[in-house]
């Protein structure tokens, strides 16, 4: 174990970890937006929107995230979408995780007791009012934990953008493995940084989950 080398390269890994954090935060926000829209589409009364939602989930969950990112980044310019690697990475990862979040959010909404909807409608609330004031507040409590699982997967998923040369943690590890021939040391540094990011996020989600539960 070459601790000297590890100390020397550590600052570069720390900088790369910040990029991974940025990628994760942006992807989580955009992914939640995609997931909410997807769930709204899948639960719509209009068949057209339901079909769009189902197709989105099926295509994205049926193909590898890496291919989706490649289509966007390398294939995008052919259909007039020019993105730099970082933006392509964020958008590709968000659209990907959004499909998984669609199912999480939809699952939470449909597991709210049917009687809630019926009771609110009987009291004269419109469908939209019921959704906003009765169903979603209850569903939100149910979705914090499973969304946390999605976010955990998303953080590890950000490593994929190393393949389109975004200088984040995995790309940096790969580069230093190539130049120092010390794969174990480089794995340990980057692995530890990933674990810290995931641990802190996990604690945050557990805190949020406690906060939203009715005691």
């Amino acid at each position: 174990m070459d601790f000297d080398l590890m100390m020397r390269v550590f600052p570069f890994f720390l900088e790369a970890a910040l990029v991974t954090v940025q990628l994760s935060i942006l992807t989580a926000i955009l992914g939640l937006i995609c997931g909410s829209l997807g769930a709204a589409a899948r639960l719509s009364r209009l068949r057209f929107f339901r079909a769009i939602g189902a197709t989105y989930v099926s295509i994205i969950r049926g193909t590898p995230a890496l291919i989706q990112i490649f289509i966007l980044y390398f294939g995008g310019p052919q259909i007039g979408i020019q993105l730099d690697a970082f933006s392509a990475g964020v958008i590709g990862l968000s659209v990907n995780i959004g499909a998984y979040m669609t199912e999480t959010i939809r699952g939470a909404i449909i597991s709210v007791d049917k009687g809630q909807m019926e009771a609110a409608r009987t009291l004269g609330m419109s469908r939209w009012q019921t959704m906003r004031n009765v169903i979603i507040p209850q569903a939100a409590r149910l979705m914090v934990r499973p969304l946390g699982v999605n976010i955990n997967a998303l953080i590890k998923g950000t490593a994929l953008v190393a393949a389109i040369s975004v200088i984040e943690l995995t790309y940096t590890a790969q580069r230093y493995i190539g130049s120092t021939y010390k794969p174990f040391e480089m794995f340990l540094i980057s692995g530890a940084l990933y674990m810290i990011i995931i641990y802190v996020t996990g604690r945050g989600i557990a805190w949020l989950d406690r906060k939203v539960q009715i005691t």
Partner: peptide, 21 residues
């Protein structure tokens, strides 16, 4: 614990280049 907390891509680099080392 290490395998569940780190990305697969990173593990592939470790195994491929680590075994060569």
């Amino acid at each position: 614990w290490l395998f569940m907390g780190t990305p697969l891509l990173l593990q592939l680099f470790l195994i491929y280049f680590g075994l060569i080392q």
